[in-house]
Amino acid sequence: MSLTLVIFDVDGTLVDSQAQITASMQGAFVAEGLKPPSRAAVLTIVGLSLPQAIAQLAPGQGAATVARLVEGYKDHYTHLRANDPQAGGSPLFPGAREALERLAQRDEVLLGVATGKSRRGLTHVIETHDLAHFFLTTQVADDHPSKPHPSMIQACMAATGAEAARTVMVGDTSFDMEMGRAAGVRCLGVDWGYHPRVQLQAAGAERILDDFAALDAALDEMWEIA
């Protein structure tokens, strides 16, 4: 029996964090006296590590300003999570838990996470939704270069002993697909997240899911032809 590894992105793939990400980013810019980015602009950078994301949204700003925006984003994010349940929540996408439960029941399947979130942010999501028992390895932005660098996927494979040919990266952004390709693994996109299908395909997605119900069959087909 060959071990197979499925690595999930978090924001836009497992959880819908759009409201708190956009509100936190816009709040950070306003606090710094800068024009806040549009919702559409914010969604283009979801998946990158925070300093890289903010640098893209604030071109021409110096390192000190970017650093203050990073801290401002973190402060707004924490405040929303604590004081505004509607904006601060990150609900699981429909079918996400059921898909994780199905995969976790398969002896040959191992599950991991590769996310642009901080360790604190991922821990909050995992504790809120009781997901800790699903994942054998969780890799976060605190410990790695930003996506699309392959470091997080490489760490997931090293931690589990999985081979690249038997590993699939599941994500909603071109950064996830590019990271997967850089690591030499299979790439599976989802169309309910933050980047459109055409962008996922251009970045290397072999398949794109319309819902979580189709995940198992897509994975089996990918592993069969690996």
Rank of each mutant, 00 (worst) to 15 (best):
I225V: 15
S2D: 13
W223C: 13
G89K: 13
L209H: 02
G184I: 12
F8Q: 09
P196L: 05
K117I: 04
Q199E: 15
F175A: 11
T160K: 08
A155C: 08
K117A: 05
L92S: 14
E98Q: 15
I45H: 11
A162Y: 05
K117C: 04
M157I: 00
F135W: 06
M1T: 13
T65A: 01
L5V: 05
P94C: 14
I7P: 00
G180R: 00
L122Y: 12
V30D: 11
P59C: 07
F93R: 13
L43F: 12
E163F: 00
R120M: 09
A41Y: 07
V125G: 06
L219A: 07
P150W: 08
W192T: 03
C156W: 03
D11K: 06
K35A: 14
G47F: 10
Q86S: 14
V113E: 08
P91I: 12
D220C: 11
N83T: 15
T123Y: 00
V10N: 10
K35R: 14
D216F: 05
T138L: 11
D143C: 09
G89Y: 10
G62S: 12
E206Y: 03
Q18Y: 11
A226Y: 01
T138H: 03
A31V: 13
C187K: 02
L34E: 06
G33E: 09
F135C: 04
M152E: 09
V30Y: 01
G204S: 11
G112E: 06
H124G: 00
L103D: 14
T173G: 02
D216Y: 02
L34D: 03
A165D: 07
D172V: 05
G171I: 07
P148I: 09
M169R: 10
A82C: 08
T167K: 06
S24R: 02
G189K: 01
F29Q: 00
E101C: 12
K74V: 15
A58E: 01
I208Y: 04
Q199P: 05
A58H: 01
A96L: 13
D211C: 12
P148V: 06
P94W: 12
M177P: 00
Y194N: 08
L122K: 01
T173W: 03
G184F: 00
M169F: 02
L131R: 04
S38N: 02
G72F: 02
L50T: 07
D11Q: 07
I21M: 12
A41T: 06
G184C: 08
G60K: 10
A53M: 11
M179L: 02
Q201K: 12
F135N: 04
D220R: 15
T22S: 15
V109K: 12
R197G: 05
V15N: 06
Y194Q: 04
H76F: 14
T138Y: 00
L200I: 10
E163D: 06
Q52F: 13
K35D: 13
E178S: 09
A159N: 06
R119Y: 07
L92N: 13
I208M: 01
L188A: 01
S24Y: 08
S118A: 03
T44E: 15
S17P: 00
K35H: 14
K147Q: 03
G180A: 01
M177D: 03
L131G: 04
L14I: 03
A104G: 15
A226P: 00
P51A: 06
G189T: 08
R39N: 10
